[in-house]
Design a protein around this nucleic acid. Structure first.
Length: 823
RNA sequence: GCCCGGGUGGCGAAACAGGUAGACGCGGCGGUCUUAAACACCGCUGUCCCGCAGGGGCGUGGGGGUUCGAGUCCCUCCCCGGGCACCA
């Protein structure tokens, strides 16, 4: 199917689903990022990034997914596998387009001024991976310089060898003829390995000696240079100084190849380390020894200059021109080229002279493509698309790669401001009013992709003056723009995920015979109550693949083969049964089609109604946490909706109304307003619904006793409907109108709690003896300390407790608590 | 290994600021209604012990501490979820 058709179909289905759930969006602001109306501005931003030196073309070793036939960003590779298909990714050297996100690394590490969840901040910080240390230059005997990044320049005096990544460009010149064969062989082997294999934990260290030597700049000593795959070309300079005495990896390598180990840290209050007999690297604090100028300097667990020994070493290196203080990041620049058809074209042109220039004729439209072979992108061979002219009217070629889809989502909030604005990505008037985003919600799985990219985009757009008109307009409207364009979203909240429901599998009774470790079935019968010994194999069905069953029996899991001719009997299902009708055990885990544990929202809405489904989703989970679906729990939500209907349609007639009962209902209503207010602003939807259920309970009781006035009844019912409106929009609107209100419940002013009405008339005062609750009494909320103590000491039960000893101390916290210490 | 979350009844979960643990709901039990089942309605429901009753002991992953008082604060350990990881 053509991706355009597929995409638009999905959008239609999603739109229908959202509408049926009663989602309240401003549909006038809808836009679609694969529509040229939108992506022309993505291209425009790319061109702006190119002109501002944020987008650049560079050669790098990239993650290539053979399955998808495209490169992937580092963020899209998990454990060496493509995060979408789970297939291994290989390394390939290619010229691609990058965004200089690393220029913003330090700013991206600063989260001051934004209210984001701790885990997301931690993930981004982790991802960026800033480390402080020094860059030190080692010189080889042939005169080549090898810069090395280290976080521990203080241990330079203990460096006994160097290691380069196998792909390091200097390996060739360094390698001595007598070592050439071994080095070449090792490099070939390393290249053939996937990233996945290289990352396997606890592998034995491998490597070979190049035969070359470098000079340690701090003491002029010659140290051998090795190559090994535990050094990665993509981190730092692709070369390290190895200090085996104080680094676990270097230590393992040194022992493997019998290289010397020289300790330069003496642990606090312990004898000096002996390089020959150490069994593991020492990475703790102590005092520097055998380290020339920094001898005797204390070393701590602190990072960077905060560690005195590191500070001393950096100072010495800088004074002697042997190195400089340096910061290194784990994060790489963002690779945005994709070899795919379905994406935003990269609006660049290759001139005949080999230079590159941006396309001036935006938008560069994605041509209609007729064939999708699943092979290389049709753009790469589409002559009509590729052929163009440059700014001097000479024939030129278009870039055939498209952009990573995260490009589109990195700036879409700005397009929402004015999706049809024609002269810029967004209307600065709208931006001056709305920006920045107050609250944004989404899953934490976007932490190092969408959310990090979006922060980067905003900062880059700010620096490229994209917000200048907006800033000018803000000032005209007396709004201070200072700091408003440093971050896209002021508050972020992550919603949890609804997981699949746990379900027991059928209990199977299998007759048949053992054959080569497997059990071959003659018959399979479902029987929930079969005893263990009813057949050779009896137990719960855990998993089924084709005609192979995993059955959990009393003696462990048994693999059962069910031949075609075997008889299958499922009592609940008529006719001739088949293995596919057996129900297997479902664990609590993410919903997915392949696991068969998906709860379809359309079906739920069909069965229970949109209001019930919304209410249940809000009520049953901590919104930020999520959890397993419970198909029974939704009944409670439905009961609540039914009760609200009953309450809303009741023609209430007061019976023996009392002031007490009326005030009590009013108090409940006003306390509910207060609670719902607080809970909703804290994303505590579950407790907001609980508060509304409590008000429902009070209303049902009032309806039974008819002891409240009509005014109190009406106030409480209206309050319930307004507070419930955001969660159950349909039923509240209908009841609101039936109760004779003209305007929409959704437009009605949010109620205000009256503190005088909400105030409790009496509170329960807890009386403790030695911290244990021994009695409770009702008291006036304004009771003073003396009165509270007197009342507490006066109850019969407390008197008995007081008789057991002498009062040592009385702590009073009126009106809630009096604690009497008796011994 | 490092960094974040988290661990509370049979289950989903509450508990503002160190002060009544378990709100609200599910499930379960008992009852009313019904020929019956379902629905609905009423009541009970942390756990153990004594009991005719009033009660009492224990209880927020384990252990220790601070405090008149700890789910909440401190130390330590265990377990679960997520992220990063031969990152120099």
């Amino acid at each position: 199917m053509h991706p355009a058709k597929w995409t638009w179909n999905n959008i239609d289905r999603m739109r229908r689903q959202l509408r049926s759930m009663g989602a309240m969006f401003d549909w006038d602001r809808e836009m679609v990022s694969c529509d040229p109306d939108y992506y022309q501005w993505t291209e425009w931003l790319f061109r702006r990034f190119f002109e501002g030196d944020i987008a650049y073309r560079g050669e790098a070793i990239v993650n290539w997914s053979p399955t998808l036939e495209t490169v992937l960003a580092n963020e899209q590779v998990i454990d060496g596998k493509d995060e979408r298909t789970g297939q291994p990714v290989i390394q390939k050297k290619m010229k691609q387009w990058f965004f200089a996100i690393t220029d913003y690394a330090d700013e991206l590490l600063d989260f001051s001024g934004i209210d984001w969840p701790e885990p997301v901040k931690a993930m981004q910080t982790n991802w960026i991976g800033r480390s402080e240390g020094a860059e030190v230059v080692f010189t080889t005997h042939s005169g080549d310089e090898i810069p090395v990044f280290t976080t521990r320049p203080d241990t330079l005096w203990g460096a006994t060898f160097m290691v380069l990544a196998p792909e390091h460009p200097l390996v060739d010149t360094l390698t001595d003829p007598t070592h050439r064969a071994a080095v070449d062989e090792y490099r070939t082997a390393a290249a053939a390995q996937s990233e996945l294999e290289r990352m396997e934990a606890d592998r034995e260290k491998t490597g070979v000696f190049t035969g070359g030597y470098a000079i340690n700049p701090v003491n002029g000593e010659d140290i051998p240079v090795w190559i090994a795959d535990y050094v990665l070309l993509s981190y730092g300079s692709g070369a390290i100084m190895a200090v085996p005495a104080h680094d676990e990896r270097d230590f393992a390598f040194a022992r493997q190849f019998e290289l010397s180990v020289v300790p330069v840290i003496r642990p606090e209050g312990a004898p000096p380390l002996d390089g020959a007999t150490m069994t593991e690297a020492y990475v703790g604090p102590g005092t520097m020894v055998d380290s020339g100028p920094i001898n005797g300097v204390p070393t701590t667990d602190a990072k960077g200059r905060a560690n005195p020994s590191v500070a001393a070493a950096i100072d010495w290196l800088e004074e002697h021109d042997a190195g400089v203080e340096a910061v290194n990041y784990r994060m790489r620049d963002w690779l945005i080229s994709r070899q795919r058809y379905w994406g935003t074209p990269i609006p660049m042109i290759y001139r005949q002279d080999g230079s590159i220039e941006p396309a001036q004729d935006l938008p560069v439209l994605l041509p209609e493509a007729s064939t999708f072979t699943g092979g290389p992108s049709p753009l790469a061979t589409d002559e009509a698309f590729l052929a163009t002219t440059d700014s001097d009217s000479n024939p030129a070629r278009r870039e055939s790669d498209t952009m990573d889809t995260f490009m589109c989502s990195s700036w879409y909030p700005y397009r929402y401001l004015s999706p049809h604005h024609e002269s810029a990505p967004f209307d600065p008037e709208e931006a001056a009013y709305w920006l920045p985003i107050d609250t944004y919600t989404g899953g934490a799985e976007h932490a190092t992709m969408h959310l990090l990219y979006t922060r980067f985009f905003t900062k880059a757009m700010r620096d490229l003056n994209v917000f200048d008109d907006t800033i000018r307009l803000m000032e005209e409207h007396d709004r201070d723009p200072e700091g408003l364009f440093d971050e896209p979203m002021m508050q972020l909240r992550n919603q949890g995920q609804i997981l699949g429901e746990e379900r027991p599998g059928d209990r199977l009774v299998v007759a048949g015979a053992w054959n080569d470790g497997r059990f071959v079935a003659e018959s399979v019968r479902v029987d929930d109550h079969a005893p263990e010994d009813a057949a050779p194999v009896v137990g719960e069905l855990i998993r089924r693949t084709e005609r192979t069953l995993q059955v959990a029996t009393a003696d462990g899991t048994v693999t059962v083969e069910v031949p075609n001719e075997a008889e299958v009997d499922v009592p609940g299902i008529d006719g001739i049964n088949d293995v596919t009708q057996l129900r297997h055990h479902l664990e609590v885990q993410r919903m997915s089609k392949s696991k068969g544990n998906v709860v379809n929202p359309d079906e739920l809405v069909e069965r229970y109604g949109a209001d019930t489904v919304r209410l249940y989703l809000m009520f049953a989970f901590d919104w930020e946490k999520g959890g397993p679906w419970d198909s029974r729990g939704i009944a409670g939500a439905r009961r609540f909706v039914d009760d609200v209907w009953k309450i809303g349609t009741t023609e209430y007639l007061p019976g023996d109304a009392t002031d007490d009962a009326s005030l009590s209902l009013r108090r409940s209503a006003h306390q509910t307003i207060d609670k719902v207010d607080r809970d909703m602003s804290a994303f505590k939807w579950n407790t907001a619904v609980a508060a509304l259920m409590t008000l429902r309970n009070d209303l049902l009781e009032a309806r039974r006793t008819t002891a409240v006035s009509l005014e109190a009844w009406n106030e409480a019912v209206d309050t319930l409907l307004i507070l419930l409106a955001p969660i159950a929009p349909h039923i509240t609107e209908e009841l609101w109108s039936r109760r004779g209100h003209d305007e929409s419940v959704h437009l009605h002013a949010w109620p205000q709690a009256d503190p005088d009405i909400a105030a409790d008339q009496t509170v329960t005062l807890v009386v403790q003896i030695n911290g244990k609750v021994r009695d409770r009494i009702d008291v006036d909320p304004n009771i003073d300390e003396d009165a509270a103590v007197t009342a507490a000491m006066g109850t019969e039960r407390i008197k008995e407790w007081l008789a057991t000893g002498e009062v040592r101390k009385v702590i009073a916290r009126p009106p809630n608590l009096v604690n009497i210490v008796v011994s």
